[in-house]
Design a protein around this nucleic acid. Structure first.
Lengths: 147, 147
DNA sequence: TGGCCAATCTTGACTCATTCAAGAAAAGGA
DNA sequence: TCCTTTTCTTGAATGAGTCAAGATTGGCCA
């Protein structure tokens, strides 16, 4: 049975963030890990495969708490509902397909925030550069070529 | 009275985009030009200073049409409602204040899309890099310092 | 181990930006 | 000027996300 990563890891993540270990939280962490860039509905559905009784509100609350404590990261490309991912703390970026909305990770070229210098900062103190690449995913390119 | 830029320019912009010239459209173009990065409500309020009878729906429709034809650009930083700006076609980016939501323009260092190379593109055909810098505006820095 | 208290969960209603729908009005070409 | 198509108005609907209040539960400490 190995090290039971499925069960123990989320628990430890919660504890190390000083959060209580509850069934909904563990289920949400597992769902986000196994469904990269999933929206809230997808997370909710995945969570209910484990425990059909968990409420929609609990999932929203848990996602908010996990986001605040940095255990998951919330991403919101325009024209999309909020999505969540488990890769945190490595300052990576995203590519979004204009056609189907698919999202993939892109490593940050420089490795650490803010990762880009602004050409003119208007007096702002800049902490982070968020980069979203827009384009067409492989699948949509092939669909387009076929027609 | 100069060249009456207030009135003629929007008209010509509309005509050159093959769009009909209507009072709401001219008013919305003027509002977006004079209120950089305004949200829909602000645009609506500005429009109603010119013509108090224009409906909220007309403004939404007009903004959508203008956006589609490239006369205005829609921006949507996360946790913010949609905002509009009149600077289009120059591939510039934005700085957003985490504290008060203020938005300012940042010129693109390279000048043309996609402006950044992705380190690994996952097979995506990349057309554009959208960059949002997150930080603290001058005013909020000073407020923070004062307390 | 038991009990307390704060944190968390459930249920259900609500908000608010944005969109939809159907009929009325107006722009622009013939 | 007339006709067709596009656009505008009015009013209702949608849907992601939030709020609120009471019930429940986890964790800490004796």
């Amino acid at each position: 049975m190995g090290h039971m990563h499925d069960v123990q890891e989320p628990e430890q993540m919660l504890r190390s963030a000083s959060l209580r270990v509850t069934k909904p939280r563990v289920a949400v962490i597992n769902a986000v890990h196994s469904h990269p860039h999933a929206d809230t509905d997808t997370v909710l559905a995945a969570v209910r495969e484990t425990d059909p009784e968990i409420s929609h509100q609990a999932v929203y609350d848990v996602l908010k708490v996990l986001t605040k404590s940095g255990l998951v990261r919330r991403i919101q490309p325009k024209d999309s509902v909020a999505r969540y991912e488990s890769r945190v703390g490595d300052n990576h970026h995203h590519v979004v397909c204009r056609s189907c909305g698919a999202i993939a990770d892109v490593d940050c070229a420089t490795g650490s925030a803010p990762c880009l210098e602004a050409s003119n900062d208007n007096g702002f103190q800049i902490e982070e550069a968020e980069v979203i690449y827009w384009g067409t995913c492989l699948e949509c390119q092939e669909t387009a070529k076929a027609s």
